[in-house]
Design a protein around this nucleic acid. Structure first.
Lengths: 257, 257
DNA sequence: CGACCTTTTGATTGGCGTCAAAATCTGTGG
DNA sequence: CCACAGATTTTGACGCCAATCAAAAGGTCG
């Protein structure tokens, strides 16, 4: 529920060494020479500390962002102080694009851990899309994938019980981390680094931290999962998938055509 | 909950007289001559009766669709027979595009009323996008708007009580109908034609039809709304908006750049 | 008119929220 | 390295919102 002032240590107009633009999936397949002018032009790199906001409700966004390292969330708060996490953002994900009317976003974005974000101007993206249509196609693909995720969450939040919601979220995050943060995935253990608090799990599923705790305890004592010091290990994926009505194909990206 | 066989009365390969392609918002601004070859090529028109499915979970979609008339829904069902309505589809909306992995959709689409749908081939759309980049941009815009809607629903479903969820849904649909089906809107009455059952409202909000009924009764006796024979009239929009934490700007489309 | 769908109402139950407090973990400064 | 404040997890008792079960009353359509 932190409403900290933005604590961005920004380093504008420096060439982005850590996050070469080529790594951004929406630029896959574009000739290097085309990218070069962009590479050194109006591209920023941002470092965040945990809990800092990248942007907040009602901001006018002049940039779009890709996360290169760390966890972030998109969220929204109700008048009575409850928070809904709309989406967990992992490295490779693209955010800040969907602005509603008059260019203002209807949600906030914050870092869950220290994070490294790459920003570049909206107008540049627009330019890029007209010069290089495949950028637009990639963007469409990303958005389609996001929509698919939102649909699954809506289903989860609307029509499953607490166990189903939590199991679904755990499995989704587990596999997304596995794919998008291979270094956080321990294959031998079948575990991931998992810096998400129980309160955050609650804010994402629409449950209270207290109830999340009870369900997690149960999953642990049933030996479905194991979680100690910010790591999550899946012990009985079959059972969890069953409870969650989850399958990995739900979160993998697919071709549109 | 109907799992009827598909009852599509399809009229393939006929020129589409009723729904000129120009009316599809993603083709706005494209010179007529460019559209002509498309107009008469591989474009279908489909008539649906209420409750028929346009496509179902796991289908491979070779077409994308725009609704020209009538109400439709996108939905998904759980193993235990509960249904979640993911999205109400009104004239002008674009569906069938987001296919997940291996081209199979993760949801079903069905008509709520008799409906008129225009279909055209995915591959054609792809072609179109490369020839005419503005098609891609429009598509991105549409998808962004959809994402925004999904986010609001997630918030609603996850963090509001029954009154808030229902009030939000009523207001959203009311204003979308006002914009997208002006003929269904009675300005004098401030009412719309509203062919949605209480069970469907429940399936969209994650509530039971019984509880939806109780809340609606309360809204009616408080004189916030009036609903008789498939029409919905808003009597106290301020109060409803307050309960729902809704504002019209949430559902209007805006520029992306 | 009769089958079926939708709405309505009542009685009862239960899952999850709320409140509260203790236990544990984490980081920070002396 | 310890002390201490703040965050997070854990547990228990209790209450309430919405689900469930059941049945009647309207509506709709062939």
């Amino acid at each position: 529920m932190s409403n900290n002032p933005v604590r961005i240590r920004e380093q504008p107009h420096t060439q982005c060494k850590v996050c070469p633009i080529r790594q951004m999936s929406i630029f896959k397949g574009i000739p290097q020479q085309r990218l070069e002018w962009m590479q050194r032009y109006r591209q920023h790199q941002l470092r965040f500390s945990s809990k800092a906001n990248l942007y907040t409700v009602g901001s006018r966004l002049d940039y779009v962002y890709t996360v290169f390292d760390g966890w972030m969330i998109l969220y929204q708060a109700t008048r009575i102080g409850k928070r809904q996490i709309l989406r967990f953002v992992l490295p490779g994900d693209f955010i800040g694009f969907q602005a509603a009317q008059d260019g203002k976003v209807m949600h906030s974005a914050a870092a869950l851990t220290d994070a490294l974000v790459c920003a570049f101007s909206r107008s540049l993206l627009e330019e890029m899309m007209s010069v290089e249509p495949s950028v637009a196609t990639s963007l469409i693909q990303k958005e389609s994938h996001d929509i698919s995720l939102y649909q699954h969450h809506l289903m989860s939040t609307g029509r499953k019980d607490a166990k189903g919601k939590i199991a679904f979220l755990l499995l989704e995050l587990f596999h997304r981390v596995r794919i998008q943060m291979p270094k956080s995935f321990d294959e031998a253990n079948y575990s991931i680094h998992f810096p998400v608090t129980q309160e955050e799990l609650g804010d994402a599923t629409g449950l209270t931290n207290v109830h999340v705790n009870r369900v997690l305890r149960e999953f642990i004592s049933d030996e479905y999962i194991e979680c100690r010091n910010k790591s999550l290990r899946i012990l009985n994926e079959d059972k969890l998938s069953d409870i969650a009505e989850f399958e990995v194909s739900m979160i993998t990206e697919g071709a549109l055509f």
